[in-house]
Design a protein around this nucleic acid. Structure first.
Length: 415
DNA sequence: TCTGGGGTCCTAGGACCC
DNA sequence: TCTGGGGTCCTAGGACCC
């Protein structure tokens, strides 16, 4: 922008982040095929990838492909620490940092080139600094547009850097297969293949109307624009989450209604605590359920007012779970999740019932709900995330929280 | 050891209002 | 007698990403 069209956006992406962090504790395993995860592969080293192992793959399948695979447990606290340190390094080069996930970010460096040099020089310095600070390797892509910077970093992996200079974008982009584009997954890839579209160049030569018939209007317009390197999105630093949620998968065996309530209690306590931590409130509560055949359904309820109360989330969630169980009486559940969207900023001081009742100060039921939320928060602070709900040493399988709730609910009758 | 947990965005239909 | 069209909100489902 300020320097007459030079590449000004960097995309920085840590290589095999979870696996690399795990290896810092086990340096003897460097160079071996290592995966981190439980149930499925969260992340794996490039040695494991060479054998066909991929993120998201069930561990059983990964072991089939790579019998010598070493599987390590994940430690989420470690990941957050390392991520924080890496993002601090990013901010040494520019305040314009947009986090995309725990291990990648966009950086707008258009205001930094006079201090730190060309994009390639900044990218090289940033990679060096991250390695100094954390011993982790980060791949970097650079371009005038956001999505192309991201593609460049993917192509540069592992431990590489590609800066796409202005004027050379289409030469770089058009030979790539379409699934390099953000938003092209297996389904869209297949739909595009039926049109004979294999490369980004093919995509650019295909009419938008034809594309829209196969993949929908919005996606067609988006993909067509990307094929010609049109991406007006800038780096956004202050993005607010659109939803907050938690989910839990359990084995195929039958769960009693009490056990399902306890799962919802634990998930509600986690989500509510996270909302209150950030002073957010949300108005729409969604329950997601997955059956043993992996088919999934969602049921949502929009409250009259926003809430951050674990107690309200629990009560609303239970109602939605009951609805699902009524509609699918004979199917076993495999997973339950609860999330809150329609978020807005709200003070934590004033809790609302969110069910259309007046949140009058001193409303006895509101005070009880608030007391439950405070109990949730202090338990979680003292004993960690498993303090409330099934598996908790402290409270057993039916949480005190759920019992308190049902107590209050039973007294609601007749109001 | 067959399937984790955190998200974003789009589509489509119905209810409801003017 | 005939029966519009736009806009918003809500719900449900699905593709996709890390």
């Amino acid at each position: 922008m300020t320097d007459g069209g030079a590449a000004t956006i960097l995309h920085a992406d840590l290589d095999a982040f979870y696996a690399s962090v795990a290896l810092l504790r086990e340096p003897g395993l460097i160079g071996k095929p290592v995966a981190v995860g439980g149930g499925v592969v969260l992340s794996c080293t490039y040695e494991a990838r060479a054998m066909g192992v991929r993120g998201g793959m069930p561990l059983g399948r990964a072991r089939e492909l790579c019998p010598s695979l070493i599987v390590l447990d994940s430690d989420f606290g470690d990941y957050v620490d390392y991520s924080d340190r890496v993002f601090e390094v990013f901010r040494e080069f520019t305040p314009q940092v947009e986090p995309l996930s725990i291990d990648e970010a966009f950086l707008d460096i258009s205001g930094s080139t006079h201090l730190f040099g060309s994009p390639a020089e900044i990218g090289a310095a940033l990679r060096k600094r991250v390695r100094q600070e954390t011993q982790l390797s980060v791949s970097v892509g650079g371009s005038r547009t956001k999505f192309l910077a991201k593609i460049a970093s993917q192509v540069a992996k592992p431990d590489g850097m590609i800066i796409v200079e202005p004027g050379t974008e289409l030469d770089f982009l058009h030979p790539l297969s379409v699934d390099h584009l953000w938003g092209v997954g297996p389904v869209t890839l297949e739909a595009l293949a039926t049109l004979g579209v294999k490369t980004v160049g093919d995509l650019g030569e295909t009419s938008e109307r034809l594309l829209a018939d196969r993949v929908g209007r919005a996606r067609a317009a988006h993909l067509h624009a990307l094929a010609w390197n049109r991406d007006p999105r800038g780096v956004e630093t202050g993005r607010r989450a659109a939803s907050v949620g938690a989910q839990s998968a359990f084995g195929g065996d039958h769960r009693s209604p009490e056990e399902l309530r306890a799962v919802i209690a634990r998930l509600s306590s986690r989500v509510g605590a996270r909302l209150r931590n950030k002073s957010w409130k949300g108005r729409t509560v969604t329950i997601r359920a997955r059956f043993t055949d992996m088919a999934a359904v969602t049921r949502a309820k929009t409250l009259r007012g926003p809430t951050a109360s674990s107690a309200v989330l629990y009560r609303t969630g239970i109602g939605l779970v009951d609805k699902i169980l009524e509609e699918h009486p004979d199917r076993g559940l495999n997973l339950l999740g609860i999330s809150v969207s329609n978020l807005e900023r709200g003070s934590t001081l004033q809790l609302e019932l969110g069910l259309g009742e007046e949140a009058a100060p001193g409303n006895p039921r509101e005070l009880e709900l608030q007391a439950l939320d405070e109990a949730v928060d202090s338990l979680r602070e003292k004993f960690g995330r498993r303090a409330v709900g099934p598996g908790s040493d402290l409270l057993g399988d039916t949480s005190e929280f759920a019992e308190g709730l049902s107590d209050i609910m039973s007294r609601d009758d007749g109001e």
